[in-house]
């Protein structure tokens, strides 16, 4: 594993254990050192455990159980799914704590929840409630039009959306431990998710082709820290897990995003706005694991009932494009 500049920097924000301790625990003896929580490794490592999986939006404990039974690796606790946020309008905020706690009690898999962009107090509340991951999300109405939250200040890890590599690296430089391509949530239309995943891939591909001299100018163009840009050029990938989100509605959509390089998928409105959520959820889980086997994806796609209706993204007015929130 690359011991990167940012890896060390992240660790410097926490009570750091020495990597080679002198008095280790053995047998049943108590540990000589206090355990270190909130390190970059446990934050990013948590996302590594979700790879190859599906994270599903849920608004009730009952939906959370359906998601868990279908094989979801985590659920995202929301007050309204993005399709309803779109329909209802108004300001979309962090969910009711009672609802989040109800979902935490209902399932054993990790529970994520959304805070508004820049609303670090909502994030503090989510951490206090014990959610496993915080999504600082453009699907909610932004609370700050200049600043995202300082994610190093939290023990709970963050996932953030991105439409291109520069945006992803700015979020990582703020402490995000996982990135998802934004897509256009609540549309049931995968076109924007594809656009953003291809953009991130193309940006990374371009970095790999540059020589050491060119990386400084590339960092300036990307508006991202040079050390992170260099790390991506060396790794050929982001230093954190990359999922896809925003518009995935079918097993084939999930397999498409996986084949384009997503390490897993978020499915929002696509499941519980469809005709048979339990069946569709299980089908998307299968298609995400066997994304490269068209026969299995085809079998999983049979008899799922109505998919969510969907919205054509090119008819969305500018103010209703969530992907343009955040920067």
């Amino acid at each position: 594993m690359v011991q990167s500049y940012f890896y060390r920097r992240v660790r410097s924000y926490v009570s750091t254990p020495s990597s080679v301790p002198s008095a280790p625990s053995g047998g049943s003896a108590p540990s000589a050192q206090a355990p270190a929580t909130g390190t970059a490794r446990v934050k990013r490592g948590m996302a590594e455990q979700l790879k190859g999986g599906v994270i599903m939006d849920v608004v009730t404990p009952e939906q959370a159980k359906i998601a868990e039974d279908a094989g979801a690796v985590a659920v995202m606790a929301l007050e309204r799914v993005p399709a309803d946020i779109r329909k209802d309008g108004g300001v979309a905020r962090m969910s009711d704590p009672d609802m989040i706690e109800g979902i935490i009690e209902a399932v054993a898999i990790p529970v994520m929840a959304k805070s508004r962009i820049g609303h670090f107090v909502e994030a503090q509340l989510l951490q206090a409630l014990g959610v496993d991951y915080i999504d600082e999300s453009e699907v909610l109405t932004p609370a700050d039009e200049v600043n995202h939250s300082d994610k190093f200040a939290f023990t709970t890890p963050f996932v953030c959306g991105a439409t291109n590599l520069g945006e992803a690296l700015r979020r990582i430089s703020e402490g995000a431990a996982m990135i998802r391509s934004k897509g256009e949530a609540g549309t049931g239309n995968v076109v924007e998710a594809v656009r953003h995943m291809r953009q991130i891939n193309n940006d990374i591909g371009r970095l790999k082709s540059l020589d050491g001299h060119e990386l400084y100018a590339a960092a300036k163009d990307l508006r991202a820290p040079y050390e992170l840009v260099r790390e991506v050029a060396e790794l050929g990938k982001l230093p954190v897990v990359l999922f896809s989100a925003g518009g995935v509605a079918t097993p084939a959509d999930a397999a498409l995003m996986r084949q384009l390089g997503a390490e897993g998928v978020f499915v929002g409105s696509g499941i519980f706005k469809s005709g048979d959520p339990a069946k569709r959820a299980a089908a998307i889980v299968k298609a995400t694991t066997f994304y490269d086997d068209p026969k299995i994806v085809a079998d999983a796609s049979r008899g799922l009932g109505e998919a969510m209706v969907g919205i054509n993204c090119d008819t969305l007015p500018e103010g209703e494009r969530y992907a343009s929130r955040g920067w």
């Binding site: 254990p17 080679v20 301790p21 280790p24 625990s25 053995g26 540990s31 050192q33 355990p35 270190a36 929580t37 909130g38 390190t39 490794r41 446990v42 490592g45 948590m46 990790p110 951490q127 014990g130 959610v131 496993d132 991951y133 023990t155 709970t156 890890p157």
Partner: peptide, 12 residues
């Protein structure tokens, strides 16, 4: 515990 309690510690 939950993710907030996830930790690192040396181990023989």
């Amino acid at each position: 515990g939950r993710q907030n309690e996830s930790f690192e510690a040396p181990l023989e």
